[in-house]
Design a protein around this nucleic acid. Structure first.
Lengths: 207, 207
DNA sequence: TTGAAATATGAGCAATTACTCGTATTATAA
DNA sequence: TTATAATACGAGTAATTGCTCATATTTCAA
């Protein structure tokens, strides 16, 4: 996603510094997840990672660069964890299940992601993720329903992502439902919408 | 929602100070909407409202109290703007339309609300809103489908709110869809899910 | 008219913010 | 072994944060 330096700063060249950068990122992810991006300071991150503030700024030109690096990582991880599996899905129902469960797993193991993804004021960063994921869903819809016009695919993808986003906001809230129930309901909601979409466009839903 | 003092601070008693408090709240709402809660300082609010920082702290014991007061106001406004209309809705389809359009209107005229509602890290405040709104939707479902078990109503309400929340996150994003299209799609999504829910529970959807 | 309560003011405080820079410690290639 | 580049360090900077408090002004009942 970015091979040139993320920053004007030095890129880590020796093994120890590469490990350090990884470690800083991991620590930052944890803190962001717990307290949110704005509430976490760079000094805070450095202290928690047992790294001097100077070392942190050796590799990250500013606070936002840390978040950017995290987002790069997340988009890559998501691509691996989700997209491969979605393309292999034999049916739309299967694809929907993989999306919902994949997102759930991903949100669980990368809690900071949920913040970044849902936080409204980090518009630039959020946009990158949003656009990327909409593209994936759009492609999936187009593949399963070639008769669907491109604009319809796009609209469907935007709305589907709405649903998935709302879903992620609610996963760690005490809803009275188990994760499995929530997951099942969200799959049902997504499928119900998609089936409705294609039906409205005069296509008989497959399977 | 709270008649006793919001704070340990003086309650405004004279007309001029009541106006001032209103004005501070309005200004804060605007700033929160533009920049998010964390990014806006109390000094900032005071300056923008043309009020000294001391006056601000005369009526609000701390920054959070400003947000709390806003949420009180929003929940009241929402109750008036939405709930009355929902209870009068002749059909579920109509109720869904009123919810989606009401939320949209509300998000438009109270932009700060969107932030507060969706922001993950303001857990306490967000919870109040979430719980309140889930209750409303739950009641609506129970009324339109008396055969639906209370847990089913609750589950349905939680998932429906997920969808509405995701919706609010996306309204002012360049999606390539007009507001009307988005609104229509979201109504369709909500209805598709609810119809699916009652169908799965062996009830033939009305109308 | 008077005086006490309500309201208004903003300089200023301690704490924290994102970030710099001079210096010290490593690693590596010659 | 040595010299140069890479890495590490953390005291220190200016700016900003949420918030206080002594003082000044306004309101209104008596």
């Amino acid at each position: 996603m970015s091979d040139q330096p993320t920053s004007k700063r030095r890129r880590p060249q020796q093994a120890r510094s590469q490990q350090r950068v990884e470690h800083i990122l991991g620590t930052a992810a944890g803190l962001f997840a717990e307290q949110g991006y704005e509430a976490v300071s760079t000094n805070h991150i450095a202290r928690a990672a047992c790294v001097s503030i100077g070392s942190l700024y050796q590799f990250f030109p500013n606070k936002e660069a840390i978040l950017d690096a995290l987002v790069d990582k997340y988009l890559n991880d998501m691509q691996e964890a989700l997209i491969g599996r979605i393309e292999e899905a034999p049916s739309l129902e299967d694809a929907v299940q993989r999306i919902v469960q994949g997102m759930q797993r991903f949100g669980k193991s990368h809690k900071a992601f949920k913040h970044v993804f849902a936080e409204v004021q980090l518009a630039a960063v959020t946009d990158r993720i949003h656009t990327t994921v909409v593209g994936w869903i759009e492609a999936m819809l187009g593949e399963h329903y070639p008769q669907l016009a491109p604009e319809q695919c796009h609209a469907g993808a935007e709305v589907s992502l709405c649903i998935v986003k709302g879903m992620m906001l609610v996963y760690d809230r005490p809803t009275g439902l188990t994760r499995e129930q929530l997951s099942a309901e969200m799959q049902a909601a997504l499928l119900a919408y998609i089936h409705d979409l294609v039906r409205r466009n005069g296509i008989t839903p497959g399977a």
